[in-house]
């Protein structure tokens, strides 16, 4: 059975500032009981049911992974690996958490493992990015902003980065983040607080240099 996608009424009620950001995004919610039904069918070997789950969630997982690792090739590869692992491990999905949270957990484990194994990355350039020829000012500003955000996130340890992305961009509750990361709610609270403090320092330095 295929569920219906509909605009999320919660997003529509978002605060003014959040609504501005929401204009550039599309929010969708999917009936979770429907997800469980599809997952149940997939557990019985129904590939079409799993195909539907992939169709629903691959974009969400890709965005999460891209924001965490800031590399499209890595994000693609890890998204694929997440769904392969999900298919392999479907028997382990008991429905205690939502299917979406379960997927986030698989992706988070993959991502944290990979980021922890990676050599310390080259620091992003500290220089002001140069405007490209004929680049509109707004586009240039957006690029600079994106670089500053990338630098703020890249400076965080993998677990703090994942928690912050899940909170700010994926808009998961602390409880859902705790499930996705396999940690207690108090531990997630601490992770998020430390991540926000570290991101604030990085952004403050960019502000001092007039980048943002």
């Amino acid at each position: 059975m295929v569920g219906t996608l509909r605009p999320d009424p919660v997003a529509a009620r978002a605060s003014d500032s959040a609504r501005d950001a929401a204009r550039s995004r599309v929010y969708w919610t999917v009936d979770q009981s429907d997800d469980r039904q599809l997952a149940g069918q997939a557990q019985a070997g129904d590939l079409a049911a799993f195909d539907e789950l992939v169709r629903r969630y691959h974009g969400m997982i890709y965005c999460y992974l891209y924001r965490t690792c800031r590399n499209s090739a890595d994000a693609e590869e890890m998204t694929q690996e997440s769904f392969v692992k999900a298919w392999e491990g479907l028997k382990g999905f008991r429905g205690a958490a939502s299917f979406k949270t379960w997927l986030y957990r698989i992706a988070t484990n993959l991502c944290i493992n990979r980021l922890s194994r990676r050599k310390p990355h080259d620091p992003l350039s500290e220089d002001l990015p140069a405007a490209r020829r004929d680049e509109p000012e707004e586009s240039f500003r957006q690029r600079v902003r994106s670089e500053c955000i990338g630098r703020a996130l890249a400076g965080l340890p993998a677990d703090q980065r994942s928690a912050l992305v899940l909170s700010i961009y994926e808009e998961l509750s602390h409880e859902e983040i705790a499930q996705a990361m396999g940690r207690s709610s108090a531990s997630v609270n601490m992770l998020l607080y430390r991540a926000r403090i570290a991101a604030r320092r990085s952004l403050a330095s960019d502000r001092e240099r007039g980048l943002i």
Binding site: S17, A18, A21, S24, R25, L47, F50, D51, V54, R55, H58, G59, Y62, C63, Y66, R67, S72, A75, E76, T79, Q80, F83, V84, W87, Q142, R145, S146, I149, A152, L153, L164, I168, Y169, R196, A199, R200, L203, I212
Partner: peptide, 27 residues
């Protein structure tokens, strides 16, 4: 304010072929 600033980062573009690629790998 910083959380709001981070939130303004644009949404990454999802490759159009990704869903198909995932299912092809699984099949």
């Amino acid at each position: 304010a910083d959380a709001e600033f981070l939130r303004r980062d644009g949404k990454p573009e999802v490759p159009s072929y990704l869903g198909t690629r995932i299912m092809a790998e699984i099949r």
